[in-house]
Amino acid sequence: MVEISSDVIRGYNDTMILYILRKAPSYGYEISKQIKQLSDGKYVIKETTLYSAFTRMEKNGYIESFTAAPEADGGGKRRTYYRITGNGQQYYKEKCEEWNLTKEVVEHFITAEE
Protein backbone atom coordinates (compact mmCIF):
# COMPACT_ATOMS: atom_id res chain seq x y z
CA MET A 1 0.00 0.00 0.00
CA VAL A 2 1.17 3.49 -0.78
CA GLU A 3 1.84 5.75 2.15
CA ILE A 4 2.04 9.49 2.25
CA SER A 5 5.60 10.68 2.49
CA SER A 6 6.04 13.09 5.35
CA ASP A 7 8.09 15.42 3.17
CA VAL A 8 5.17 15.98 0.82
CA ILE A 9 2.51 16.43 3.46
CA ARG A 10 4.62 18.63 5.73
CA GLY A 11 3.65 21.88 4.00
CA TYR A 12 -0.03 21.08 4.48
CA ASN A 13 -0.22 20.00 8.10
CA ASP A 14 -0.85 23.64 8.97
CA THR A 15 -3.69 23.78 6.48
CA MET A 16 -5.40 20.75 7.98
CA ILE A 17 -5.07 22.04 11.51
CA LEU A 18 -6.38 25.50 10.56
CA TYR A 19 -9.31 23.94 8.69
CA ILE A 20 -10.36 22.16 11.89
CA LEU A 21 -9.78 25.21 14.10
CA ARG A 22 -11.90 27.39 11.78
CA LYS A 23 -14.95 25.47 12.98
CA ALA A 24 -14.20 25.55 16.71
CA PRO A 25 -11.29 25.77 19.13
CA SER A 26 -9.88 22.33 19.87
CA TYR A 27 -7.06 20.45 21.57
CA GLY A 28 -4.25 18.12 20.50
CA TYR A 29 -5.80 14.68 20.46
CA GLU A 30 -9.17 15.93 19.19
CA ILE A 31 -7.45 17.56 16.22
CA SER A 32 -5.37 14.50 15.38
CA LYS A 33 -8.50 12.34 15.59
CA GLN A 34 -10.37 14.64 13.20
CA ILE A 35 -7.49 14.63 10.74
CA LYS A 36 -7.56 10.85 10.77
CA GLN A 37 -11.34 10.73 10.30
CA LEU A 38 -11.53 13.38 7.59
CA SER A 39 -8.79 11.61 5.65
CA ASP A 40 -10.61 8.28 5.97
CA GLY A 41 -7.79 6.94 8.08
CA LYS A 42 -5.29 7.46 5.28
CA TYR A 43 -3.25 10.01 7.16
CA VAL A 44 -2.31 9.79 10.81
CA ILE A 45 -0.43 12.82 12.08
CA LYS A 46 2.38 12.10 14.53
CA GLU A 47 2.19 13.73 17.95
CA THR A 48 5.55 15.46 17.55
CA THR A 49 4.51 16.80 14.12
CA LEU A 50 1.29 18.15 15.57
CA TYR A 51 3.01 19.81 18.50
CA SER A 52 5.69 21.31 16.26
CA ALA A 53 2.96 22.78 14.06
CA PHE A 54 1.21 24.26 17.10
CA THR A 55 4.39 25.90 18.37
CA ARG A 56 5.36 27.25 14.96
CA MET A 57 1.91 28.63 14.16
CA GLU A 58 1.55 30.16 17.59
CA LYS A 59 4.88 31.90 17.16
CA ASN A 60 3.72 33.23 13.77
CA GLY A 61 0.46 34.45 15.30
CA TYR A 62 -1.84 32.14 13.32
CA ILE A 63 -3.27 30.45 16.41
CA GLU A 64 -3.59 31.20 20.12
CA SER A 65 -3.56 28.74 23.01
CA PHE A 66 -5.56 28.74 26.21
CA THR A 67 -6.21 26.25 28.98
CA ALA A 68 -9.67 24.88 29.64
CA ALA A 69 -11.51 21.80 30.82
CA PRO A 70 -13.97 20.26 28.34
CA GLU A 71 -17.62 20.78 29.31
CA ALA A 72 -18.69 17.41 27.92
CA ASP A 73 -17.22 15.15 30.60
CA GLY A 74 -17.91 17.24 33.69
CA GLY A 75 -14.78 18.02 35.64
CA GLY A 76 -12.66 16.56 32.85
CA LYS A 77 -8.95 17.16 32.83
CA ARG A 78 -7.59 20.55 31.82
CA ARG A 79 -6.10 20.70 28.38
CA THR A 80 -4.38 23.21 26.15
CA TYR A 81 -6.85 24.41 23.53
CA TYR A 82 -6.05 26.28 20.35
CA ARG A 83 -8.09 28.86 18.47
CA ILE A 84 -7.50 30.45 15.08
CA THR A 85 -6.64 34.17 14.82
CA GLY A 86 -7.40 36.71 12.07
CA ASN A 87 -3.91 36.22 10.70
CA GLY A 88 -4.52 32.48 10.75
CA GLN A 89 -7.69 32.87 8.64
CA GLN A 90 -5.73 34.92 6.14
CA TYR A 91 -2.89 32.37 6.09
CA TYR A 92 -5.39 29.52 5.60
CA LYS A 93 -6.87 31.21 2.53
CA GLU A 94 -3.40 31.73 1.07
CA LYS A 95 -2.52 28.10 1.68
CA CYS A 96 -5.73 27.00 -0.07
CA GLU A 97 -4.90 29.08 -3.11
CA GLU A 98 -1.36 27.78 -3.07
CA TRP A 99 -2.63 24.21 -2.99
CA ASN A 100 -5.04 24.76 -5.85
CA LEU A 101 -2.19 26.07 -7.92
CA THR A 102 0.14 23.26 -6.86
CA LYS A 103 -2.50 20.66 -7.60
CA GLU A 104 -3.18 22.17 -11.00
CA VAL A 105 0.48 22.21 -11.91
CA VAL A 106 1.34 18.75 -10.65
CA GLU A 107 -1.85 17.31 -12.17
CA HIS A 108 -0.49 17.97 -15.65
CA PHE A 109 2.27 15.51 -15.01
CA ILE A 110 0.25 12.72 -13.47
CA THR A 111 -0.92 9.81 -15.55
CA ALA A 112 -2.73 6.57 -14.87
CA GLU A 113 -0.91 4.79 -17.69
CA GLU A 114 1.52 2.08 -16.83
Binding site: Y27, Y29, E47, T48, Y51, F54, K77, R79, T80
Partner: peptide, 16 residues
Protein backbone atom coordinates in the same frame (compact mmCIF):
# COMPACT_ATOMS: atom_id res chain seq x y z
CA UNK B 1 5.52 22.52 28.16
CA UNK B 2 6.21 20.33 25.14
CA UNK B 3 6.49 17.23 27.30
CA UNK B 4 3.29 18.04 29.18
CA UNK B 5 1.32 18.58 26.05
CA UNK B 6 2.65 15.50 24.28
CA UNK B 7 1.74 13.54 27.39
CA UNK B 8 -1.81 14.94 27.24
CA UNK B 9 -2.18 13.78 23.65
CA UNK B 10 -0.71 10.35 24.30
CA UNK B 11 -2.90 9.86 27.35
CA UNK B 12 -6.02 10.89 25.41
CA UNK B 13 -5.17 8.57 22.57
CA UNK B 14 -4.39 5.67 24.91
CA UNK B 15 -7.65 6.12 26.82
CA UNK B 16 -9.71 6.19 23.67
Amino acid sequence: KAKDELWQMMEDKYNE
